[in-house]
Simulated scan of single mutants.
Amino acid sequence: MTLKQLSKTFAAAALSAGIGMTHADGIAALQKFNTDTDGISGQFSQTVHSKKKTQTTSGQFSILRPGLFKWEYTRPYKQTIVGDGKTIWLYDQDLKQVTKRAQNQTIGDSPAAILSNKSALNASYTLKNDGASSGVDYVRATPKRNNAGYRYIRIGFRGNTLATMQLQDSFGNNTNIQFSGVNTRPNLSRGQFHFTPPKGVDVLGQ
């Protein structure tokens, strides 16, 4: 091999190494998101596949860390879920009914915990990179507890932007959530996560 050929070989190797080093890392994107993000808002489309049916819903969401979140379903029905740090309120407009539950007993190791509390990710899950598809890098988060309710949560990032969550629960149901219009610097206040049941609705405690 001549000196010129050797130089080309080293250059190609260096270029290849550089490409490998700059390739996106799902865990790195997830950890950066978890460390840097204090608030997040956007839209979502959620599809749940069970053994008997498939249902798709959509709406918007907002989260203020730690512990505050709001999911507003607008299609095909209207339903609001609010976590105010102490209580989770579920308001079904069609049924004119509100259900309230203690937040610390309800969200557990759920996706809501990952998104709304920075400490939940590393405390409750084992993480591993899980491939890439269509520009999205995936992380598989496996609950450390056997009774967490989820077999795994697969989180996808496009660059450093949250793109999708894919969940499989302990019953084998699969949920796919696609995020859009994600804003990690929203102007949110704690007051936006205060919920007062509308007049005339039934309030059920669990």
Score class of each variant (00 low, 15 high):
7 S>K: 15
143 P>V: 09
80 T>G: 07
135 G>Y: 13
123 A>E: 13
200 G>H: 04
15 L>G: 03
64 L>N: 01
153 I>D: 01
102 A>Q: 13
100 K>G: 04
114 I>V: 04
142 T>K: 06
127 L>M: 05
159 G>L: 12
43 Q>M: 09
135 G>I: 15
203 V>F: 13
16 S>I: 14
39 G>D: 05
120 A>E: 01
134 S>A: 15
194 H>R: 15
37 T>M: 07
110 S>C: 03
42 G>A: 13
199 K>L: 11
133 S>F: 05
144 K>E: 02
111 P>V: 02
180 S>R: 06
53 K>L: 07
20 G>W: 12
82 V>I: 09
124 S>M: 08
45 S>Q: 10
72 E>T: 08
34 N>W: 00
184 T>V: 12
164 T>N: 06
105 Q>W: 00
74 T>E: 07
60 Q>M: 10
37 T>R: 06
192 Q>A: 11
104 N>D: 13
133 S>V: 06
86 K>M: 04
41 S>P: 05
46 Q>D: 08
62 S>T: 11
184 T>M: 06
187 N>F: 03
71 W>E: 04
93 Q>D: 09
193 F>E: 08
59 G>E: 11
198 P>Y: 13
153 I>N: 00
35 T>D: 13
120 A>V: 01
181 G>L: 07
105 Q>L: 11
169 D>L: 10
174 N>H: 14
26 G>V: 02
177 I>E: 05
166 Q>H: 05
114 I>Q: 01
159 G>S: 09
88 I>K: 00
134 S>I: 13
48 V>G: 00
86 K>I: 00
204 L>Y: 12
137 D>W: 04
126 T>A: 13
168 Q>A: 10
59 G>M: 12
15 L>P: 00
172 G>K: 04
163 A>K: 04
13 A>Q: 02
51 K>V: 06
